[in-house]
Amino acid sequence: MLEQAVIYTFVALVLIGGGLAAFSRQILYAIIGLGISLLGLAGLFLNLGSPFVAAMQVLIYIGGITVAIVFAMMLSIAMSIRPPNPDARKLGFAIACAVIFFGAVAHLIRGAQFQQIASPASEKAWSVGALGHALLTHYNVVFEALSLVLLLAIIGAILIARKA
């Protein structure tokens, strides 16, 4: 029961944060919304049985990315500047798209038949060790490639952002 309540809290966090991020005209509020949403998501991950990913989510996303966005915002616009007036047509179009998309996906999800496994795999298979093992054996090419991408992104970001 409590568990259910916790999960719904997380879901609520995700959606409220997402709504804040989507509809807020103030960038700072949007970033805060993003953070809330990500936090809720991390909770859901935890709930889905993956503490490691949840931790990573908090560390990298909330700790890294969100903060980086805040920095970028502070470097680019003064926080006191009022954002431009909302464009009703644009917003309407966006909402219409979202509604159509959500309707379609929801319809699909409700109609879909998933071949669910009877019970979750063993605790061992969910361990960080197993994850690390898989990452360095089966997925090592992806892992290396990702490292390379990150490296390049960093170099690229520096190159782009430095003063000409």
Binding site: I100, A104, V105, L108
Partner: peptide, 10 residues
């Protein structure tokens, strides 16, 4: 693109 995707998915 998203709408189209939704339609195709449907």
């Amino acid at each position: 693109a998203i709408i189209l995707l939704a339609v195709v998915a449907l």
